[in-house]
Design a protein around this nucleic acid. Structure first.
Lengths: 208, 208
DNA sequence: TAGATTGTTAATCGATTAACAATC
DNA sequence: TAGATTGTTAATCGATTAACAATC
């Protein structure tokens, strides 16, 4: 039986499963099952079993899943067995929050370089790093073999910076600018737009 | 012909359409069409026309859409003709970035109160506001008639705070904590988890 | 009128769920 | 073995797209 390629939407849920497994482990739990994981995430148990089945069989019939084992498997599948160095572009308020975000390290990522164009910011410390001149973006990214970037620059600068990142070898961009980036085939982009999320929810609020 | 209720996934794209219309307007454009909007968002023109059709007919046959008119209609549909006061819980690095985020005001939202439990933070200024004791959460939220909150607290505090928010009248939560909140029917939650997004993209990166 | 683009229908595609045989 | 839960299939559900009549 040939296994169908996992749809992107299923891949996108794997990090949630990983998150739940980490939580379970922190609670001292050693086994779980698709029903319990589903409850914690508001998903059906069938969906969880189906998503996992794209990648293999990780459970034991009648007994569920070993928390540590499934967690390790998901980390392997998601390419998280190494620490990915990440370039952060933009050292404004958001850049500061991201540079100080404690969860990257334990999750497989590490901010390895921070850039800005503002002369007042260049040279200043940010977390463990020093803000570098964005003019040196390509150079530093190539030197450090960075393939993941976080874009925290103003909307009007985002597309240009994205193109420079891609030219320098970046293949995944977490984009905080409210712009749909145009990138070549093979480059992944995920957009984070809190305003769009708030507006989405506002639709359901009662008019007062 | 009875109009089918708009699916949530279509509602969630309306803010993107609104964003594009604002951009077009900033560029001085007065008309557009579904093809152009689709190009800018990486969506098909059919999808845009279909999404809009759940709410009415906003275009002109042969001529496309009037930018300002469609923008106004989307603002009306999304309940953005008023400024929604928003409670921000958590005055850490992320809270600071959010309190200083310039885009809320022009988008229909305004951070109206900031809370934290840390005595070192309570009383300190944050943007135009003063950080208040989280003990007074319910009181302030009720007083100000706040129904939208942004949760920027540590994961282990998130569920408890969410319950207090809901009890105080909040009906929409933008959740930055890496936890799937359990909330009653009728309360909307949107989760923002940059780590999950990075992990999603890491799946597609070449193993090195 | 000719040309263009909407709004809508129907077809297609893909994702979720229900159900259950497999199996520990 | 009895009980439990997986992994997988097939059915269902829902979203997207193609196509085109409507219409300015």
């Amino acid at each position: 039986m040939v296994k169908r390629k996992a749809p992107d939407i299923a891949v996108g849920r794997l990090p949630l499963y990983l998150r739940v497994l980490n939580q379970l482990e922190a609670e001292g739990r050693t086994t779980t099952n698709s029903q319990e994981m589903g409850n914690r995430l508001g998903l059906s148990s069938a969906q969880i079993r189906k998503d996992l089945s794209y990648f293999g069989g990780f459970g034991r019939y009648g007994a569920g899943y070993d928390v540590a084992y499934l967690r390790d498997q998901l980390r392997r599948i998601l390419n998280l067995e190494r620490i990915w160095p990440v370039a952060l572009v933009g050292a404004g308020h958001l850049g500061h929050a991201l540079a100080n975000y404690g969860r990257f390290g334990e999750s497989g990522f590490e901010i390895a370089a921070v850039f800005d164009t503002d002369p007042a910011k260049i040279g200043q410390p940010l977390g463990d790093l020093i803000v570098q001149d964005a003019a040196r973006l390509e150079e530093v990214i190539r030197e450090q073999g960075i393939v993941i970037a976080i874009l925290a620059v103003p909307a009007q600068a985002a597309q240009t910076v994205a193109e420079r990142l891609v030219a320098a070898g970046v293949r995944a961009i977490l984009n905080y600018a409210p712009v749909r980036l145009q990138v070549p085939e093979g480059v992944k982009v995920q957009e984070i737009d809190p305003v769009a999320r708030l507006q989405h929810m506002a639709f359901y609020l009662f008019r007062k």
